[in-house]
Computed example of a mutant assay.
Amino acid sequence: MSTKLELPIQEFTTPYPVTAREDSSIEELLDIVKNIKVRHIPIMSDGKVIGIVSERDLRIASALSTREKFLVRAEDLMTPNPITFKGDTSIEDVITEMAEKKIGSVLVADEKGDLKGIFTVTDALDVLIEILRGKR
């Protein structure tokens, strides 16, 4: 008999994720990944999330010519309308959707849709470790 893990996602979310503007260059995004050591960057426009750029997207963009890199902006690379959950969504529902859709991160927002955090596969592994060690 299994029981559903009702822990809210907000307990495991990285708050206040590093974000970038839709007009950010590839170089700016690469600097964020390298210097801040994140793998997913929410892209913002007028205070709202419009997409997300992953480290993988940036690796692919690295194959562009120097001229192309100069012209490409975050909005050209991003995945639009990233999957977003409210903070009280159960961890099990979030992790299940991430596994089914094979995605590395989801965003967490409040009732108004304002970005509150990011939840990644690494965060999911941290949850698993806590459960295995009996801390949850």
Rank of each mutant, 00 (worst) to 15 (best):
V18L: 00
S62Q: 12
S90F: 11
T84A: 10
A74E: 12
R39M: 09
E6L: 13
L29F: 04
L115S: 04
L125K: 00
R56C: 09
I60F: 09
V121E: 10
D93A: 13
L107E: 05
L5H: 08
K112P: 01
A20P: 02
L58Y: 12
I52Y: 12
V72K: 12
E68L: 10
M98F: 10
I50L: 03
D110V: 03
V72Q: 01
S25W: 00
S62Y: 11
R136V: 15
A124E: 02
S65D: 09
E92Y: 10
I60E: 09
S25M: 02
K37W: 11
R133G: 07
L107K: 05
L71T: 14
K112A: 14
K135V: 02
L30D: 14
K102V: 15
L132V: 10
M1R: 12
F119R: 01
K48F: 07
D76C: 05
I36W: 06
T3E: 11
L64H: 07
T14C: 01
E75L: 06
D46T: 07
E6M: 14
I129W: 07
D31G: 09
K37P: 04
R136Q: 13
L115E: 05
I118F: 09
D110Q: 00
D88W: 14
S65N: 07
S105I: 13
G117C: 05
L77W: 15
E22W: 03
P17N: 02
G51Y: 02
A109H: 05
I26T: 05
R21V: 04
M78S: 01
L71W: 15
D123C: 00
S62A: 14
E100Y: 13
K86G: 10
V49D: 03
E130M: 08
I131K: 12
I118E: 03
F119T: 00
G51D: 04
T84K: 06
A109V: 14
T79S: 15
K37Q: 11
G113D: 06
E111V: 11
V108S: 02
M98Q: 11
V127N: 01
I118H: 02
K48P: 03
V94C: 08
K48N: 08
E27A: 15
K34R: 14
S45K: 11
M98P: 08
T79P: 03
R136K: 13
S25R: 00
E75M: 07
M1V: 13
S2T: 14
M44T: 06
D126K: 00
P15L: 05
M78E: 04
G134V: 01
I26D: 03
S2D: 14
E130G: 04
T66L: 06
M98N: 12
L58I: 07
